[in-house]
Design a protein around this nucleic acid. Sequence first.
DNA 1: CCCGTTGCGTAACAAGCGTTACGGCAGGGC
DNA 2: GCCCTGCCGTAACGCTTGTTACGCAACGGG
Lengths: 208, 208
Amino acid sequence: MPRTTRSPESRERVVAAAWRVVADVGVQDATMRRIAAEAGVTTGSVTHHFADKHDLLAAVVRHNNLLARDRIVAAVGDGRGLVALEGAVDALLPIDADRRREWQVGVACWGPAAPGDRAAGELRDGWRYLERLLAALFDQAVEDGELPPTVDAGYEAARMVVLVAGVGMLAGVESPERVRRDAKRMLADQLQRLEEARTEDHTGGMGR
Amino acid sequence: MPRTTRSPESRERVVAAAWRVVADVGVQDATMRRIAAEAGVTTGSVTHHFADKHDLLAAVVRHNNLLARDRIVAAVGDGRGLVALEGAVDALLPIDADRRREWQVGVACWGPAAPGDRAAGELRDGWRYLERLLAALFDQAVEDGELPPTVDAGYEAARMVVLVAGVGMLAGVESPERVRRDAKRMLADQLQRLEEARTEDHTGGMGR
DNA sequence: CCCGTTGCGTAACAAGCGTTACGGCAGGGC
DNA sequence: GCCCTGCCGTAACGCTTGTTACGCAACGGG
């Protein structure tokens, strides 16, 4: 049987086009024909690669997650602990046009993705990945002595995820300048608080 | 000219019905006919009160804001400062079914509300109201000596809004139990951090 | 060299959408 | 008591949507 002649490339083209359309006009107006036109193909090609629209949307969310993931691993590199953590979070903040588009897609697919839907599972997986990664980096920071052992890595990771989600969501209604300014400050504050707890812990022994 | 015979009541009924439908099935599947059926009327009544669907959605978001606002003012009551602030934030956290539905509507209307749309303006107004209220309460807390004067009320309010938005957004993908547990802890942490700064400040400077 | 299979364009489908036009019903102003 | 005017149910319109059926070109295995 003749396998795929040159297939996986054009499937990715359709997903990338759908991602762009969703980011631009939302899920509501991201019609099959518009996506096909953006990809430079027709609906026949789209329906050939995807069972239905829900399937395509799930692929779009997965693509969105991969974009974020690639950005994160590039930012982390071979770093460890707090530096890597700050880089990872920074890579997600909606402080430029590209990152804001990723948030646009993420939030747009949040609503219509009803519980049990395929896209909803992809979305949840993305958040879980982020939380686990951050928890691992917090653990490293404790291991390396950057943070006191009293730090609850899992909880701090969840807290960081909430910060990222909150900033990302509000980026849709706030001015980019303000988001850029506040987001950086909040990230720095949240990390600094934990570091202060460490130095306090050390100096606190003699003071008390 | 004969004014409205008994009008404003049925308009509200349609808005409330639309709010329920959007919370249940999302904006995409919240059709005019379905909303009308939920309200116990027909599309003729709906189109009589609202110019078009965007107009109705804007009213739904406004309704959603009012629900949250009523809950906030009930929680604040005649309280001041940190107690009132904690009550206000607590009134917004998606820790029960009612509050989660409000978040469902808010996020669902975030995506399809393209910039310049009427619903987007309503959404932004809701966030602005919350931020100003929290800033005022932070100011009161500083005034009453609950927090040191070094506290930047505007920034802390923005930070609190981010916490609320993040928790609300993640409530859609996390289990209710976990959200309930983490949200309370994060709120307490964020407030406690500021209070600790005060006691440190006082014990360091002069004996309170 | 042929043939089965795959990739994808074309075209059509039925369903459902938002929206509009119209008509009857009621209730106050003159 | 007439009539004018808001209220709302009925019904239809035109359009777009997701989806499907079909057909041609290309390509690799036998």
